[in-house]
């Protein structure tokens, strides 16, 4: 376990470096919510999910839906590190003609399971994939990553209701609960608390963890595999901008790219 955690920690650091570099190179993008999700995404792509980057359309692969599509940099970094496309291509983020669109486009980039960006829609798509697995008698798992601010969208709760109704035990929703949204703290803009209770009330198996501690992330994802006929919601407390001191807890780093000295400092901290 210790060795696995050490390897994942190093991989997450590499992914964070990619995030800083690619957003800086693009001159725009969303570093804060990408950095907060880096450990969760790393755990999924480098420990938990059944994948074959050479066969991105392998029918039995596990699926990951980035419902909080603005965190595209963390997904792209993980896909590149996992071998879906060359790492060098990360520098094309948001540029004309790039496969790395500002928000994920499933038709352009291999490994992207769903086009997202309009918040609140990813969980519904994940439900559909989980239903398809059941219809086809396949045992793949479906993961959806949502933001806590995103949980303000009504469609999230339509999907939550349906996932429990259809007993989608092959589905895991993870909420990257970093507590901040564009206009300020979620608690001040429009509180989503008590968020774990809301998922429980909708009939989900709920786990609450520290979303930066692999010692908690991995066991939670394992527990989700045997939730007894219920979908699992993992409410992961995270820090927006995690890993870059001047971005941590900073609401202004939701959608702003670092520049010059900031990039150097961020990369030094992540070295």
């Amino acid at each position: 376990m210790e060795k696995i955690v050490a390897e994942l920690t190093e991989k997450a650091r590499e992914i964070r470096r990619h995030i800083v570099r690619m957003v800086a190179e693009a001159g725009s993008g969303h570093p804060g919510g990408s950095l907060s999700a880096a450990d969760i995404v790393t755990a999924l792509y480098f420990n938990q999910m059944r994948l074959d980057p050479v066969r991105p359309d392998w029918p039995d692969r596990d699926r990951f839906v980035l419902s909080k599509g603005h965190a595209a940099p963390v997904l792209y970094a993980a896909l590149a590190e996992r071998g879906y496309f060359p790492v060098a291509e990360l520098s094309t983020l948001r540029k004309l003609g790039s496969r790395l669109q500002g928000h994920p486009d499933m038709r352009k980039l291999p490994g992207v399971e769903m086009s997202t960006g309009s918040l609140g829609q990813g969980l519904s798509a994940a439900n559909g994939m989980a239903l398809a697995a059941r219809l086809d008698g396949r045992d793949y798992r479906v993961y959806a990553l949502l933001g806590d601010g995103e949980c303000q969208e009504g469609q999230v709760w339509e999907a939550a209701m349906a996932a429990a109704h259809y007993a989608l035990e092959n589905l895991t929703a993870i909420v990257d609960f970093n507590g901040l949204q564009i206009d300020g703290p979620v608690s001040e803009v429009m509180s989503t608390e008590p968020l774990p209770d809301k998922w429980r009330a909708f009939g989900w198996h709920v786990l609450e963890i520290d979303g930066h501690d692999f010692g908690q992330i991995l066991p939670a994802l394992e527990k989700a595999r045997s939730a007894g006929g219920r979908p699992t919601a993992i409410v992961a407390r995270t820090v927006k901008g995690k890993g870059v001191s001047f971005m941590e807890h900073g609401v202004d780093w939701h959608g702003v790219a670092p520049k010059g000295d900031q990039v150097a400092q961020a990369l030094a901290e992540l070295a």
Partner: peptide, 23 residues
């Protein structure tokens, strides 16, 4: 057949996921 209840947005999104998985 899947009845999604009075929730059209989720119905369409669920259909998208089913289609992405080959249905």
């Amino acid at each position: 057949f899947f009845d999604l209840g009075v929730a059209e947005a989720n119905m369409v999104g669920t259909a998208a996921g089913l289609a992405a998985a080959g249905k």
